[in-house]
């Protein structure tokens, strides 16, 4: 019986950065833990899991697990949790994790804390905090009356300590999915237009608002983003105006983000936008209006036209980075 179960995500055997954050936290806790990974290539995660001290890697490489299927995944995690009885389950608070684990909790008498931004784990206590009201406030989550505490961590919230050599290799155990009559069928996965990192996982975001004047000028944001390896976001005003898709919206009815660097271009800083980005480590504001609320949240600001300043910044970063 392991005390923690860590759910590892991967692309064809290549572990995701967010899963390394979870493994680092599990190792740091000093508690016994095992890992779980699903789909094609899952077994290749055994060496990484071992390096962090996982005792066992639970997997299934059945075809049904190659893409996320809520019914199959819920059943599999239900089986594993009932068999292994972990007290804590750690996973990433991405769109898959948030779709899956609340349902798993319903099945195994669990409690779930989604979108956690801090975690302190030890033999004697579990302490997690998460934002509420789109990060206008935060709370400590206390688990009650549950057999397993499910903690979904926001990407970038935990540090990664690289571990490469294992004291002893983790046992790889195949857990077969019990027979299930699937009523949910994943027909297709349509890849996004860009291969960029999702806003919620990005470490740098360049974001544009009304001050960009029109959708054609978002090219300037793309240019800067490609030099920095950043993702591009937008304010609600320009999403509602139809300039860009809503998957780019940052703010209370869009995505809550916490990158290391957030560059807000031509965004005045409505309260609902500030709610979604003000936990970014460093905020740069570029706006013509020196009284714009965005400057109140900024670390650095330039008063001026974003359309004029963006190409200057892109050139300057190019010189620095290439």
């Amino acid at each position: 019986m392991a005390q923690i179960l860590v759910y590892l995500e991967h692309n064809n055997g290549q572990i995701k950065k967010t899963s390394l954050e979870l493994l680092t936290a599990a190792k740091k806790s000093g508690l016994d833990f095992c890992a779980a990974a699903l789909g094609k290539g899952a077994k290749e995660l055994a060496s990484t899991a071992s390096a962090y001290g996982a005792k066992e890697l639970l997997t299934s490489t059945a075809d049904v697990f190659n893409t996320y299927n809520s019914e199959a995944y819920t059943q599999w995690f239900g089986q594993v949790i009932k068999a292994k009885k972990p007290q804590i389950l750690l996973a990433t608070a991405n769109l898959t994790g948030k779709d899956l684990f609340p349902r798993v909790a319903g099945r195994v008498n669990g409690g779930v804390a989604t979108d956690c931004t801090s975690l302190e784990l030890s033999a004697s206590s579990v302490k997690v905090r998460r934002p509420v009201y789109s990060a206008k406030a935060s709370v400590e989550v206390e688990f009650q009356n549950c057999d397993v505490k499910i903690i979904l961590m926001r990407p970038n919230a935990l540090e990664i300590k690289n571990e490469t050599s294992a004291a002893s290799p983790a046992t790889v155990s195949e857990v077969a999915l019990e027979p299930i009559d699937l009523k949910t069928i994943v027909k297709d996965v349509v890849k996004g237009a860009s291969s960029k990192v999702d806003l919620t996982e990005a470490s740098i975001i360049v974001s544009g608002g009304r001050g960009m004047k029109g959708p054609e000028n978002f090219k300037l944001l793309e240019d800067l983003a490609s030099v920095l390896g950043a993702s591009v976001g937008a304010s609600r005003a320009v999403v509602d105006a139809g300039w860009v898709g809503h998957d780019m919206q940052v703010g209370q009815t869009g995505k809550t983000v916490s990158p290391n660097l957030y560059i807000a271009c031509g965004i005045s800083g409505a309260i609902q936008h500030l709610a979604g980005m003000s936990s970014s480590k460093v905020i740069v504001a570029i706006n013509k209006d020196k009284d714009a609320p965005i400057f109140q949240k900024a670390t650095y600001g330039i008063v001026g036209d974003a359309l004029e300043i963006l190409p200057l910044l892109t050139e300057e970063f190019k010189k620095l980075l290439h």
Binding site: G110, K136, V139, Q144, C146, F295, L313
Partner: peptide, 30 residues
């Protein structure tokens, strides 16, 4: 299953460094 306690507001951010005037020089400085 879960209870929220110890509500907090986000920490105040330190005063921003704001640059006005020559945008080219300010971009280099930023």
């Amino acid at each position: 299953k879960i209870n929220f306690k110890n509500f907090q507001l986000p920490p105040e951010r330190p005063q921003a460094k704001i640059f006005e005037g020559d945008v080219a020089a300010n971009s280099v400085q930023l």
